[in-house]
């Protein structure tokens, strides 16, 4: 589904990501784990086109999209749920969802809205509330649902569990699992490495802008170095 080669992301003279290469197989979940500031979010942002890509190639279903604008990538099925949710605080929940489907044919939107409200009952309940008045967990649900409204082929999830209470973290990973089971391809960025590896089939460890370890998720889960650095404390 996604094939990234030699991707470098730089903000001016500072290189946040240096020549990383990885792939995400269709219908699977891959995860990028690593410490704060390692370049995980920069990588995702470069994939969606928000961060400046200096060099490298991004192939989505075999097509090089590295020079495409953000919205064109969205239209092609590459949809990111950004870190910090970025819901439109002044607009209603319903409007947020509608805008998520901005590039979809209008005829299909009503049915999708219905599906999201069934899947996330809280969004039905708070339909007309301003998105800014929702709790952190509710906003995360909204952000994911909004991403799904675009009918992604590849969903990029950036730190979906960040700042959420443990119970809500579990809910978020349940949703990810569910989405995986429904056949959606997902690239997940998480600090919560244990949970992330649990739902993934393949993992990459990124440090200082470089991929240092990669392998099937179950292998990484038992890697002593990873256990020591990332899984030690657990959640």
């Amino acid at each position: 589904m996604l094939e990234v080669t030699d991707l470098t992301v730089a903000y001016g003279p500072i290189e946040a990501v240096r020549s990383v290469s990885f792939t995400v197989q269709a219908g699977t979940v891959a995860t990028l784990i690593g410490p704060n500031g390692a370049g995980k979010s920069s990588t995702l942002n470069a994939l969606s086109g928000v961060a400046p890509q200096r060099c490298g190639r991004i192939l989505l279903e075999g097509q090089d999209i590295s020079r495409w604008s953000v919205h064109r990538r969205v239209a092609a099925g590459l949809v990111q749920v950004p870190e910090g949710r970025l819901v439109l605080a002044g607009m209603s929940v319903r409007e947020n969802l509608e805008l998520g489907a901005y590039r979809r044919p209008r005829t299909e939107v009503a049915a999708d809205l219905e599906r999201m409200e069934v899947r996330f009952p809280i969004l039905r309940e708070r339909r007309n509330a301003a998105a800014g008045t929702l709790s952190g967990g509710e906003q995360q649900m909204l952000a994911i649902a909004r991403g799904l409204m675009a009918r992604p082929k590849l969903l990029l999830l950036d730190e979906p569990s960040l700042g959420l209470a443990p119970l809500l973290v579990r809910t978020v990973f349940e949703i990810v699992t569910e989405l995986r089971n429904s056949g959606l391809t997902i690239l997940l960025v998480e600090q919560n490495a244990r949970q992330a590896l649990n739902v993934s089939s393949f993992g990459y460890v990124i440090e200082n802008g470089k991929i240092v370890i990669e392998g099937p998720a179950d292998k990484l889960r038992s890697d002593p170095a990873i256990i020591r650095t990332y899984l030690g404390q657990g959640v």
């Binding site: 086109g49 953000v70 969205v74 990111q80 950004p82 439109l88 605080a89 805008l99 998520g100």
Partner: peptide, 10 residues
């Protein structure tokens, strides 16, 4: 309201 968020919605 939020240029980046809007871009990410397509």
């Amino acid at each position: 309201a939020d240029r980046d968020a809007a871009e990410l919605m397509g």
